[in-house]
Amino acid sequence: MTEDLQRQIAVLTAFHKGLANIARHDADTVVSGTLPFEASADGLETITESFEIELTVPDAFPESLPRVRETGGRIGNDYEHHNASGTLCLAVPVEQRRIFLENPTLLGFVNRLVIPYLYGYCFWKKHGRHPFDEAAHGYEGILRHYLDTLGLADEAKALAVICYLFEHGYRGHHDCPCGSGLRVRACHGPALMILHRTHNQQTVRSDFVAIFEHCFAKFQDGQLSFPTPLRLQILRLFNRL
């Protein structure tokens, strides 16, 4: 465990005193315990609740983010936003990183991602709807996130965007991957810059794979077509994987 992580855990447990158990497990540090909170959101009710949770913090933190499980058996299979392994799906990966980077500490992670998720669960349980909306499952959720953030509709455009980010990072003078014919900086520049800054090598690559897989299935069914330059770019990028 790095010293920095030790300090972050100390700050976290000073704030959330119930998260008192700390254990080492291979290349992970597991912080667990009770997480009581009183949370509110704009225009929504205040919810006071408490959950048993377990945060598995990899040694590669903050490059890789912690995995979170609810260990009190409260969140059952009727709630769809957790994985088969029991980890909570806080958000699509790139969005999770974006929010994390606003305050890149363990405490920030818990306060900005875990508690809002648990609040969302409690709200859903009570009212049958999601206070902050929900993302589509799997690869489609990832792809939708790109389309929503950039205000696009065509799925092939999401693929063009992730290819652009994966191949070049951010290039303001390139043609915008949305196909408008404008330069990036005069078109989707700010949004692409945020996505670029949020990504690291690993996340941009896995989003590329996710969006490609989703689009390729539709391509094979004849529901989607890729223009030739995009096909060539995809081939180039596959050589990188």
Partner: peptide
């Protein structure tokens, strides 16, 4: 602890 949520993510 009291938390006010802004800009929450959508669960996935």
């Amino acid at each position: 602890p009291r938390i006010h949520i802004t800009g929450a993510a959508k669960p996935w």
